[in-house]
Design a protein around this nucleic acid. Structure first.
Lengths: 194, 194
DNA sequence: CTTACTTGAGACAGACTGTACCATATCCGT
DNA sequence: ACGGATATGGTACAGTCTGTCTCAAGTAAG
């Protein structure tokens, strides 16, 4: 586990940014195994020992990398829109993140998390954020009487998010908006109260 | 890409089995990065050069490992049972495979497949097998008039399998039979023709 | 300016890689 | 059972990456 607090020393900030940017490029180009202290040092124009001073092993580098790339900015959907529209908006945000670098990052984390507890913890923080947000949107809808009261928001969230992750991770397919629309329609359609 | 044909020479078969078993153990214990030619040789009681003779690099070893561990034996569900029962049977088979070693193997493949085309191809073969099977079960049900004709078997398969993979891969949760039951009920219930 | 902290540069042992070589063991057709 | 073909054992070698250490030079901040 690395120190998650940001350094105050500007010199440290500079070198750390150089190294993280270099590592990010290496991860994108060669995968997790391509991120070595030596290469990061070379790409960042930094001494190898400096990389070791910041992160003891590869997992620590990746962890910091993955932590900083979990940037899906979830804005609350407009409350005056229909529940279907609201869910579509949220899911499209997920899909967008998955289609971009987030998908590769997530795939790397999933592979590592089976054997690295720290990565698993980071994955948990990242993975629960989205579903929790979606769940709250769904709960609100149930309270407002827009969704069948017997609908379980947790299961519903799984059923909405699961297929997106499935398609992206196993088929490497970009998620089209049409797919999201059909998924949402089919999934929450039967629970709508009209 | 390694030769996928099985060797006829019994000597080769023996050593290959020894090495693959050793590699399987290493993968389970230490993850993909723990599978090195040196360790495989040591654990299998085999000369290091022999491991190199069979597989040129780590990816090739893992590929053979993953190829041989994709053993979910999908038996056609009893055709006289209800469509709900049939789908539950198929999905429980998936869940069982995911709960066991298959889940870890799959996670490893997902992580590797983003940067390794051979692993991606193997993942594709493995990942399409299940959904295709499920899709055919669903298609049959539509033809038999048990399911709403407007139901898209492909999307329906995604919606049934996706949540299972999602829970297993991101939360490391075993899939309970109750979860499968609720998922199937909620997903295909609205499409039932009674 | 002075102290504390950070980095650069190089050395070092150890692990893993990838290849090569030859003697030995095993297979398989005759 | 014999002999050529094939596979393995064992060893050596250069090369890369790891992880740690030391010391000189650079930077930050009171």
């Amino acid at each position: 586990m690395t120190n998650s607090e940001r350094p105050t020393n500007p010199q440290v900030q500079r070198t750390q940014k150089l190294m993280l940017d270099a590592a990010r490029g290496l991860l994108a180009d060669h995968g997790p195994e391509g991120v070595t202290h030596l290469r990061v040092a070379g790409a960042a124009g930094v001494a190898r020992a400096t990389v070791y001073r910041h992160w003891p092993d590869r997992a620590a580098i990746l962890l910091d990398l993955l932590r900083t790339s979990a940037d899906l900015d979830l804005a609350p959907p407009p409350p005056d829109s229909s529940i279907t529209e609201r869910v579509v908006i949220v899911l499209r945000t997920f899909a967008k993140a998955l289609n971009g670098d987030g998908g590769r990052t997530l795939a790397a984390m999933i592979g590592l998390s089976e054997w690295d507890d720290d990565v698993f913890a980071a994955l948990g923080r990242m993975a629960t954020f989205g579903p929790m947000f979606l769940r709250s949107v769904l709960s609100d809808a149930v309270e407002q009487g827009l969704l069948d009261a017997r609908a379980d928001p947790a299961l519903l969230a799984d059923r909405l998010i699961g297929p997106l992750y499935f398609r992206r991770l196993l088929y490497h397919e970009d998620i089209e908006n049409v797919y999201v629309d059909r998924l949402v329609e089919a999934t929450i359609g039967p629970h709508l109260v009209d």
